[in-house]
């Protein structure tokens, strides 16, 4: 479980996050949703320590991450897998080298053992026989899947996904969503997904946190969203004409 308490963050005097308190459950796919620029990426980066919060605290299973020193944070980060918006694969390394990277750094396994683990992870994300390709030779969806394989190669306790579906077609996006959800349940990890894609919310959102203008505006399950009376959330969820029509249809049926 990851707990955030009274977190504040500002850049050059401009407040981006204000008094955010939320907990993310273990074994669940937790979603942070909100409009572009609402502060959800900053929140995620504050949780993992890529941005320093101005005040407030973040703890991983009771371990206070905010006040840890550099070495202690490094140790926690080895328990974290992260999928970045642009995949962030290392350009100069092959797919196999990318996935094997942290194994090379932190384990003393033989090359054969490491290859077995890499192949297992790549197979888990439905990728095979691409070990020798470079990231530039992969499609957007393949890059995301390689990044997921890299994130899970060390059996993480926590998985963070920043906009996993950005730039993907709806079918590939669905595939990535399912993969994240399956991995979360399979390994019983705490997963936090940052998205503004409502398909993802309805597909995998077991717990949903809505951020609006740097504040936590709403929190609940995907089932609660449609019945919520939060004005900002409704404005966000039913922004498209298609969603409005569905809502009108369900209301008239009701």
């Amino acid at each position: 479980m990851i707990t955030v308490e009274h977190l504040n963050k500002s850049f050059s005097g401009e407040t981006v996050l204000e008094d955010i308190s939320v907990s993310f459950d273990k074994g669940k796919t937790n979603l942070i949703i909100g409009r572009s620029g609402s502060g959800k990426t900053v929140l995620m980066k504050c949780i993992v320590g890529l941005h320093e919060a101005d005040s407030g605290s973040v703890s991983y299973d009771g371990r206070d991450f905010t006040h840890m020193n550099f070495m202690e944070r490094k140790a926690i980060r080895r328990e974290i897998g992260m999928l970045f918006q642009g995949s962030a694969l290392f350009d100069s390394l092959t797919v196999e080298e990318n996935v094997m990277f942290s194994l090379n750094m932190f384990t003393n396994k033989s090359l054969e053992e490491k290859r077995d683990r890499v192949n297992f992870c790549l197979k888990r994300v439905n990728l095979e026989n691409i070990n020798d390709l470079y990231p530039a030779e992969l499609s957007g969806g393949m890059k995301k899947r390689v990044a997921i394989a890299r994130a899970i190669v060390q059996n993480p306790k926590y998985l963070f996904c920043d906009e996993p579906n950005s730039g993907l077609d709806p079918k590939t996006a669905l595939l990535i969503d399912d993969l994240i959800s399956e991995i979360t349940q399979e390994y019983d990890i705490t997963t936090i997904v940052n998205t503004h894609d409502m398909n993802s919310v309805m597909e995998i959102g077991e717990k949903v946190v809505f951020i609006h203008n740097g504040h936590k505006s709403w929190e609940g399950t995907k089932e609660d969203i449609l019945n919520s009376d939060d004005v900002n959330l409704n404005d966000f969820v039913f922004a498209s004409n298609f969603a409005k029509k569905i809502k009108a249809l369900t209301s008239s049926e009701g």
Partner: peptide, 14 residues
């Protein structure tokens, strides 16, 4: 700018 440095940091690498 492509977050590869952030990816290294997230793996616990300096």
């Amino acid at each position: 700018i492509t977050e590869q440095i952030d990816a290294l940091e997230m793996m616990g690498i300096n």
